[in-house]
Design a binder for these strands. Sequence first.
DNA 1: CGATAGATCGGCT
DNA 2: GCCGATCTATCGC
Length: 187
Amino acid sequence: MRPSRHFFEEPVDQVARSLIGGLLLVNGTGGRIVETESYDADDPASHSYLMRRTPRNGAMFGPPAHVYVYRSYGIHWCLNFVCSPGSAVLIRALEPVKGIEAMRRRRGTTDDALLCAGPGRLCEALGIDKRLDGASLLRPPFTLTLPDDRRAILIGPRIGLTKAAERHRRFGEKDSRFLSRRFAKET
DNA sequence: CGATAGATCGGCT
DNA sequence: GCCGATCTATCGC
């Protein structure tokens, strides 16, 4: 099923969780979403913290169901789905499904476990860059399909943060081998 | 395995 | 100037 704009107006943690298992394609290339993180304006780790707008983060305050693409560490691109104003879901990893040869070519690797395992890697694999910032997720080149089956989902602290690192706003598919990192072991 | 340096842009102090 | 929602190569145990 294709999401409506309303899907993205739900609480951002719920959206991030519900996206796990969904199919994301850009120009027909991509895969199943296996890892996400949520961010909002109350979050010191978020670019939208305190609803502060800058030239970079404008898309986070635009309409839901659009994308926010930003440059990370001056090198990589990262893809977010915009939810309610100032909130967004960072897409952190995909299980490659379609256009695998094209993704291998763009990434320069044949190791499928590393094709889309990380926000920077998946943007490189799908050819996502600044040109897509602010584009609608509900129209080409994007195709997004929500999951039709419910698989076990793990929740844990987000990755690579120095602020608010303790918040459990990272969601991932249990037992997926395409995650950017393993979740902490359950006891 | 784990730790670390370096690439290098935008935003903040 | 410094730091970060990252990734890769290259150290050392």
